[in-house]
Amino acid sequence: MRGTILHLAQSSEAGVARVVTDLAAGQCATGDHVIVACPAAGTLPRTAARCGAEVVRWDAVRSPGPALAREVAGVRRIVGTVRADVVHLHSAKAGLAGRLAIRGRLPTVYQPHAWSFDAASAVLRAAAVRWERTGARWAHQVVCVSEGERTHGVALGIRSRYTVVRNGVDLEWCGPPEVSAREAARSRLGVAGTGPLAVCVARLCRQKGQDVLLDAWAEVEERMPRARLVLVGGGPERSVLAARASSTVRFAGAVVDPRDWYLAADLVVLASRWEAGLALAPLEAMACSRPVVVTDVPGAREFLPRRQVPSAVVPLEDPGALAAAMTRLLADPATSRALGEEARAHVRRHHDVRRVVERMYDVYDEASRVWAAGVHGPDEHL
């Protein structure tokens, strides 16, 4: 592209931060001027700056509310200053404030990273769907990370120009798959000599379902008393979850680099209530040769080796099924290692982050083409 790309993100931690950082790193390496506008807190400002992006402060909170007018004004100031060739909006709040501020006056790409209405209460869900239908007119491309996410939006009447770009992983970052890497990681983390280890890397919030995971873990403990569970991540539900966790559960807090936890694990699990597809953490775990167990969110099956789907995907909010899947893998190290090796090969074939960067350039080119043609709404044709 060789131009100026502006990434706008409210979430400056966890999976969104990783996606934005990976894109920024690849785009900077290509020679583009990359600007990341995000809140000052979180990991994203530091990781984006390290990969060569210019970081601009954008003060924004997660939920819509009284601060929205100020957040929209902040986007207008940033856009007026940086003169971007394309604007890439990441997640619901950036999608809301960014589209209200820009209104299609620049080539605009919106990437929900899971639809906002799935996180809304019953009272707010209808309003969130109405907004996404309205806001679609101000996005020249909507990027979904799975066909399931795209289908979900279409089914609710969000008419837009969709492109599916599945998540990718920095394969060089993932490290060696050897058994020695597992033992070295356990030593660094202070869990050397422990029994079977399950790890969940996710923000501690209702979406990620750690409450369901703890219910399942109570069953795992009964069958495997030496097993341990580590929850890696910070978030609003920590105190509530900690109050109900047993002594075999450890809270590791938020980490900038979760790689050692993947390498230390025998199994990586995520009990999400909703996602855009498969969250980034299970993909990273697979790239580190670790088997995963995930819930059957739309699109999750698209990311896994086909023969692993029956054992790796469990129903939503079903602690019994989750416990059974975890126990099978934790009790059978040889099968777990074989599944992990197969998962690593699958990710290397299909989810290299370099392909994501290349695909996103195609998305930017298409958004620019639609914008240049003066198309303003999803119902218009070139």
Rank of each mutant, 00 (worst) to 15 (best):
M1Y: 08
I5E: 05
L8C: 04
Q10R: 12
E13G: 04
A14C: 15
L23D: 14
Q27K: 02
G31L: 11
V34C: 12
C38P: 07
P39G: 11
P39A: 13
P39K: 11
A41M: 05
G42V: 01
G52M: 02
S63H: 14
R70H: 04
R77M: 06
V82H: 11
G98S: 02
L100S: 01
R103W: 08
D118Y: 03
A122L: 11
R125G: 03
A127F: 09
A127S: 06
A128S: 11
R137L: 11
R137M: 10
R137G: 14
V142L: 01
V143F: 06
A155C: 03
R159F: 00
V165I: 15
V169D: 13
E172I: 04
E172C: 09
W173L: 12
G190T: 01
A192F: 06
A198N: 14
A202N: 06
L204A: 12
C205K: 07
L213I: 09
L214K: 10
L214V: 08
E221G: 15
L231D: 06
E237A: 12
V240D: 15
V240S: 15
A243L: 12
A243K: 12
F251I: 06
A252Q: 11
G253M: 04
A254M: 12
W261Q: 13
W261R: 02
L270T: 13
S272C: 03
E275H: 03
G277I: 10
A281S: 15
P282L: 11
R290N: 04
V294C: 08
V294N: 12
P298K: 02
R301P: 12
V314L: 11
A325T: 13
M326Y: 05
T327I: 07
R354L: 12
R359M: 00
D362C: 02
Y364R: 03
D365R: 15
V370K: 03
W371C: 14
H376K: 15
